[in-house]
Structure formats: structure tokens, C-alpha cells
Design a protein around this nucleic acid. Structure first.
Lengths: 170, 170
DNA sequence: CATGAAATAACATGGGT
DNA sequence: ACCCATGTTATTTCATG
């Protein structure tokens, strides 16, 4: 049951009520909270909470559980966003392939505006970042890059803090 | 015990060996893995693993455990990066204060380049995003914004995938 | 609800300084 | 001899059918 995503996870596919929302919020705050404790908070039995969590994993609402780590503590002290400009029409498939070759690229996406892609890059230090950049620049299709080094964070780096809010749902 | 960070978490403060690295890697892959299972994988007893995890939480290496969620499933279908330009000298403290007022801002940082800050924003849809943008624009200090809407992701949105690698450590 | 597994605390041991 | 990290055991809580 590797990375089993449900075929359908459109907004209205699986019923997603306030209890689910509260359960997700609790698990985003602490993924190791016991089902019993969550149940006590939302008014369900531990078993009922487990059933809902299992269902949300199956439907792809919850994609996993992860420890959040201070990157600097692991030796990643440099962070940057990199705009990538490609030669001619940039084939997204080939572009994605290139991105997978560089473990320092933690996120890559196509965006509006002039750039063909925007990358998030983590490196040990400025020297390492420069080396990564040179490695990216010699890839086929890549014409030029523009880097924005992150100087300091204005908000705590909580994992998807914003998306953990009550959830809008139109 | 709100946000209790240890006084010292400089790179060399707490010994951080290969076992710690393996434990962190395991917990990033699945934050609900039992200490016993991790122990079996790294060659330690469950108790020893727990002690190391507790220590890493105290020293700030591990900042928490979080469920990873598909934002679209929670109703957040629009994502953008926003460059912020301020009037005159932008005071980072006041800027941070402003950022906290908008829950849709999931990350905010100062960066090199012309912009005073770079924001990551999640919204329900384009209409909602426009509303957020207007709300940000009328804040004091804010002179103008430039938005880059995310079109599609080229890599799976794993939580800090890159930083989970073996860890460089100079 | 019942059973096996996990978390956690208390206590004991061995290595290294 | 001390300190630190680990292992062992026992108890409570949890996961899960």
C-alpha cells in the first residue's frame, strides 16, 4: 500500500465534516497525539478517531506524519529561492526530471510571471549553494537563473501553519 | 512549556551522531513509527531511542511532529509567492507583526534582491487570494506587491525532503 | 471490549574519562 | 570514582481487530 492515493479526492468526494477538521488540526499540531486524547477533545471514542484518520489517509487528505526539524541543526544553514529561465519552450516533464537530480532542491514549481520555474533550495552554506547553482545551470534547457537568498524568517516556520486554520471550504 | 528552546543549540553544542541522524530520518519519514521499530532499525532499545528523541526535542533539533496534509483537500486550492516592497526603510519587527495578522500567509521572510520581503500565501481560490492581497496592500509600510501564482508542482510536496537527506554537516 | 503492542518511569550495568 | 548512554523490567496507556 505504498503511496496509495485515492482516485477521487475532489472537495465533495469524501464527506469531510467539522470532526475531521478538528482531528486534522490536532494531528498537525502534534502527529503523535493518541487517538484517545484526540477523541476526548472532539467528543469521540479512540476507535472512532482511528477510523476517521484511516479514512482520511486512504482518501489522501492526510498524506503522512513527519517530524519537523530545525534545518540549521542538521547542517542546512543556507536557503534560497531560484527563478529558472529555460531555452525556448520548457517541457515540464523534462524539467521535473532535472529537479529530481538535485537533492538540495526541496521544492520546484511552475509559476506565473517571466520565469519558467521557481525552486526552493537548501544548502550547507553559501559555498555549497553556489556549487548547487552551477550544477543546475549546466543542465540542458536552463538558460539563466536568478537567486533570492533568504536572510531571515518573519514568521515561525510551522509546517503549513496557514493551511491548518479552520479550513475555508468555499 | 510553551516554546521551550534550549539556550544553546549551536552546531557543536549537543553531540549529534549517526544514530541521531538515522532516528531523525526515520521520524521524518513517519512521525508515528514506534521507538521499538526505530530501535530495531538502528540497533538500539526502544528506551534508548526515546531518550535520544526527547533530547533532540529539548535541544531544538526536532521541533515537533506534524500530520502532512493535502492542502487542496482542506479547501486551499490556490498558492502564490508575493514580493513585498515597503515605504522607505522597512522595520522587520513591524513587518513581522503585520504578517501575523493574516493567517493565509504561511511563510514570510526577508530576502536579497529588491523586495523587502517574500511571502508564501495560501488561499481558497483566486478570488480569495485577491482579497488577501488587497488586505495586505492596505497595511502600513506596504508600497506595492508582485505576485507569482503557483501553477503546478514539479516535485512531490514532501515535508523538507531535501533537508532529510543524510545531512551534510560541513 | 479484549488483546497484543507501545510509551514511560524506575532501576541496574558497563564503558570511558 | 564519576558520568553518561544504554539495557531491563514493570506498569500504564494505546492501537486495533
Amino acid at each position: 500500500m505504498a503511496a496509495g492515493y485515492s482516485a477521487r479526492m475532489t472537495p465533495t468526494s469524501a464527506p469531510f465534516d467539522d470532526l475531521d477538521r478538528k482531528i486534522v488540526t490536532a494531528l498537525m499540531a502534534n502527529a503523535r497525539t493518541s487517538f484517545a486524547e484526540i477523541g476526548a477533545a472532539v467528543g469521540l471514542s479512540a476507535t472512532a478517531v482511528k477510523r476517521r484518520v484511516d479514512r482520511m489517509r486512504e482518501t489522501g487528505v492526510i498524506t503522512g506524519f513527519s517530524a519537523t526539524v530545525e534545518p540549521a541543526a542538521l547542517g542546512w544553514r543556507t536557503e534560497a529561492y531560484v527563478e529558472v529561465y529555460c531555452e525556448g519552450a520548457a517541457p515540464p516533464r523534462r524539467l521535473a526530471e532535472v529537479m529530481r537530480n538535485h537533492p538540495e532542491i526541496t521544492a520546484a514549481m511552475t509559476v506565473t510571471g517571466g520565469a519558467d520555474a521557481l525552486l526552493h533550495v537548501r544548502a550547507r552554506d553559501v559555498e555549497h549553494f553556489e556549487e548547487v547553482l552551477e550544477r543546475i545551470r549546466v543542465e540542458p534547457f536552463i538558460r539563466k537563473t536568478i537567486s533570492y537568498m533568504v536572510l531571515s524568517h518573519l514568521l515561525p516556520e510551522s509546517p503549513e501553519a496557514g493551511a491548518s486554520q479552520p479550513a475555508p471550504e468555499a
